[in-house]
Design a protein around this nucleic acid. Sequence first.
DNA 1: ATAATAAAGGAAAACGTTTACAGAAAGAGA
DNA 2: TCTCTTTCTGTAAACGTTTTCCTTTATTAT
Lengths: 322, 322
Amino acid sequence: MLVSIKDIAKKAGVSISTVSYALNGSPKVTKETSERIQAIAKELNYIPSAAARSLKKRETKIIGIYLTNYSGAFYGQLLQGMMETLSENGYELIVCSGKESHRFLPERMIDGAIILDATYETEELLSHAERGHKLVVMDRRMDHPNISQVLLDNKAGATLAIDHLAEKGHRKIYVVKGPEISFDARQRLAAVQKAVQRYSHIEYVELEGDFNKPSGEIAAKKIHQDFKEPVGVFCLNDEMAIGMYNYLSRTNLRVGEDVHIIGFDNIEVSQYIQPRLATINYSKHKWGALASELLLNLIKKKKPEHERINVSFVEGDSVKNR
Amino acid sequence: MLVSIKDIAKKAGVSISTVSYALNGSPKVTKETSERIQAIAKELNYIPSAAARSLKKRETKIIGIYLTNYSGAFYGQLLQGMMETLSENGYELIVCSGKESHRFLPERMIDGAIILDATYETEELLSHAERGHKLVVMDRRMDHPNISQVLLDNKAGATLAIDHLAEKGHRKIYVVKGPEISFDARQRLAAVQKAVQRYSHIEYVELEGDFNKPSGEIAAKKIHQDFKEPVGVFCLNDEMAIGMYNYLSRTNLRVGEDVHIIGFDNIEVSQYIQPRLATINYSKHKWGALASELLLNLIKKKKPEHERINVSFVEGDSVKNR
DNA sequence: ATAATAAAGGAAAACGTTTACAGAAAGAGA
DNA sequence: TCTCTTTCTGTAAACGTTTTCCTTTATTAT
């Protein structure tokens, strides 16, 4: 039923090694024999076995990206960037999410992994690296000969946001935090705390958040309850900002008049909601492409690299002068 | 460097088959030997080779889902539903997107595939099925002993939408179409055409669209240009509705007053935008779970099945009485 | 004519498992 | 004591490739 190179060899009257060479375009076999073998392979509908090949070659030409929150609104562009870079180099990308998918790396189902999944234990990553597996982390800092990293410039982004609110004359600033587990959230928060210190006249309040829309609504509720005069709010991601929009729309407070909001990530929908959300932008495509490039370098035995993705401020109607 | 069962066997003073049996919990080997072997395996940091195992067992316990548009806003819940069902049954899920990833199925990297990717040729799918591979299609109709299908009830959804607009007294209805390649788009459109025939007094206009936000903006521009009196609009998905919101906000036309909009899909953000979008809802989670279940059944040699996912109307503030 | 070289292809080992089958040891029944 | 089970473990083949090292044949140089 299942056709292997053995069947081709028999039909062509050659040995299996010749078939293998022919199918791989090796110059060791005549053009004519090669073509004859190719023809027979096609005729028999031959398809190589990935398992057999990777068992022998000790590689799969597949890269895995580890994600938790598939819902995240920017994965599309991120993955696009990765796929382009990888496929130019003969690699395929698969997205791994299930808890058991962690075994893909140690079991050598994939030749390397890109990590964007805070629930993946750093210890575990380290032990993989220790065994010689190649990794790129996008969600934490790690220093190891088999690990490269490419991180967002969260510090710059958060500082940009706070400075913008201060510039617009806001004297009370809320920040809606992210989940403790997220590296980006922690970095953004730390940068915010440092930035507000430069403005001694600013009253600064932290609100809980988990990067999802409902937590933005809850934060909005707090703000509504305390409301006395116009305030600035820095939501540590756009999702929560959207939750906040929604809650406020059911109150007498107006975004861009009473509550001035800045987000982070510039997800696609942020430029479609009303008023347009001011936010921190960065190229998701580039982030993914760079991560892939560094992984490929690592696989080619190059040195690990540490890169940073620049961010920029995106003007919006959600922040005006106080 | 790389430890295999051979190394364990040597260290434990048994044969490799005993190691294999022990590691797989076969009753053929004593509890003591088994435990001793397990201990040694752990000590040596043994990890099985996925390639070797799947070469021998002719299965990988991995299912692939084929997607094009990662950006799609509902993949999170869909994949969640799939992963739950699959992992309960000892399978892992990987998301495949790259053009070359098509080979995963014929090369037996995966034990089955779920298709939600209109660019995947039906011919190609058929040839896979013909070779004995198991498939579930979510984006087309196919009849084959190795293919199950689970489709949205697009017809019911589209009818619900048109009826709602008609009930609200609208006499001019626009429909913003989807891309020709999409089965869902074609089905929805066909149902719309059939539904409007029942309302002879309704003026019906079709506008181009491709399921992305910018095409919703373009459609909105047309509507704005032609505007005379309040109209109803059925956007064949929510994304385009959001694009329409955005364009209209820059005009004098108001959603829910001048332009009454219904979407399709009920993506998460639709309930967060203002005014809340009326739309057609269905359980993404269930859709994914069911598709996985049917695939598992197929793998267990059960008969192919054809299922349908029910849809329902979601009230919103984007549609009011004319 | 002979030896040296090149060209084309083949034999076999290896990759790391699983598993059918065979074998050995030990206990039980006669 | 002998045979028959039962219980454990070992041998070896198989999965489908790739690749190293040979062998054969043809070609060229001497």
